[in-house]
Structures are given as structure tokens and as C-alpha cells.
Design a protein around this nucleic acid. Sequence first.
DNA 1: AAAAATAATTAACTAGGGTAACTATTAACC
DNA 2: GGTTAATAGTTACCCTAGTTAATTATTTTT
Lengths: 134, 134
Amino acid sequence: MEGLFRQYIRIYRPLMKSLNELLEKYQLSYSLWQVIVYLKDEGTSTLVDISNYYQVEKPSITRRVHRLQELGLIEEVPSANRREKIMELTTEGKHIYQICREEITALEHHISKGLSEEEQQTAFQFLMKIQDNI
Amino acid sequence: MEGLFRQYIRIYRPLMKSLNELLEKYQLSYSLWQVIVYLKDEGTSTLVDISNYYQVEKPSITRRVHRLQELGLIEEVPSANRREKIMELTTEGKHIYQICREEITALEHHISKGLSEEEQQTAFQFLMKIQDNI
DNA sequence: AAAAATAATTAACTAGGGTAACTATTAACC
DNA sequence: GGTTAATAGTTACCCTAGTTAATTATTTTT
């Protein structure tokens, strides 16, 4: 399938741009949003967990986490293990999640307009499978 | 389709990483490769054409083009319009294109392993359609 | 108890893009 | 035909967000 990856990559920047424009109203960016989403799903997690999930090096995650702490959206929960920091969303963080979640879902619906649920399912499968191959 | 865009974005970095690793053998990066591919397809083009196609601002394209000129992979062709620069691949540029094309195609096949042509077609359609909606 | 591994951090660097302002040239308009 | 507006490319400066290497603190392994 010639051109598939090219098209994939070409779309990335415009997509990120619209997501970032949406998020900047809340002083967020997509990279910060990723951490919020991960904590929303997992409840609590260490920085290494986040680093592994997104395949981004730890220093980058440290910065994201510090920024989100400054914004009051996440906080550290006490842990027996003093080596690792366990993070979770604050009440404010959960609130912001809900607000952004709705906006992002609306944007995604807009972007997916005219595409059947089946097509989207297939695209999702595709993305899941190539992940393992990379 | 919950999680589709999240998955899309999550894969981007690892994919770029493997593409960049492949290309750095030739002192290239994917952003430079994009210009080469565009010129391969179009034959000749101005910087504005490239800028519009990839939706990247002109100063970024200026930099990419200068870098590729330094590498001897593209060159300016004389034009009646002295305001615009028309670029094309050099012989060396075409040569490098062929070499990288094969390697990238092989990588893409590897990454798409286990996916039917039909699935890939659907994914491609998906990517084409959302482009207009963004 | 000593050695190895792990989690987080800091510092320094890099890739790549963006905006604003500028020059040179061409096109549009009256 | 001369002035004004638009366009192509460039320069300077800044921003986001990543990386690697080295360091500290703590925990696990032997």
C-alpha cells in the first residue's frame, strides 16, 4: 500500500496543531494531556510507567509531571517506596479532564465526519497492529 | 471510536524514530526526506509549493532546502520569475532517493506485516478523509 | 554488608517548527 | 505607466519537546 505511511505522517502536524489550540485554553498541550489521560485511566502511576507507556524518556516525563503539579492538576500520593513518586489526578485535574475530554471528543467526531464506525474500527486495528511491529 | 486518535498519536514517535535511524545513514532526516519525495513526484517545485503541501511554514522549508543543497541532493533551476526559486533533484539526489525508497519500503512492509491489503486500503482512506476535516 | 539495579532528577544539547520583520520582485489597479 | 498590493524567499529570534550522560537516593540482589 504505497503512500500509507506518508499520508499518516503528513496528517500528524495539522492534527496536533488543532489539539494544541484546543488545549492551550487550559494552559495545556497534548504532551501534558497524555499524562492526564494516563492517570485518569490508571488511577495512580509512577513516572517510569508513563515513560514506558508513551515511549518517551524519563527526563521528558519529569518535566511534564512538574508542569502539571505547578498547574495543580496532579499530585504525589504517599508511598512506602521512597524511591518512586506515585502520582494521581487532583480534584481539579479530574475536572479539567472532563472538560477537555468533551472538547476533544467533539473535535474527534468532527474530524471523523463521514467515516463509518467500521472504517474507524479497521483503522484502529491497523494502528494497534503496527505498534507491535515497529 | 474511542481511542483511535490517541493510538494514532502514540505510534507517531516510534515510527519517526525508526525512519530517522534509517535515514541518518545518508545524513538525512524524515523532514528532509519529505522534500526529496515531493520533488521526485513533482519534478520541479517552488518552496511555497512544498510549504503548502506539508503545511509547514516557509522558513522551515527554506532551512530544509538549504540543507539539501549543501548535501548536493537538490539544485535550483533557472526561472524567468526571479522572485521564486524552482528546485529539482540532482542526479545524486535521484540516486539517494532510489536507495532510501527501497529501504523505507522494506521498513514499511515490515511494519505492516500481518495486515491485509484491504485493511491497509481502509486505513489509507481513513487518513485521506480526515485530512480534509482537520 | 557490598554490589547491582532502579527511580527520579539535573544539565547540556538537538531537531524542528513558529512568528515577525525585511528584501526583492511581480501583479493589480486607477 | 506609475503607484499600490501581493507574493517568494530569507533572517533573526524564540519555543516546544525531545535526547543523552551523569548524579543522587533508594531498594533489591547476592
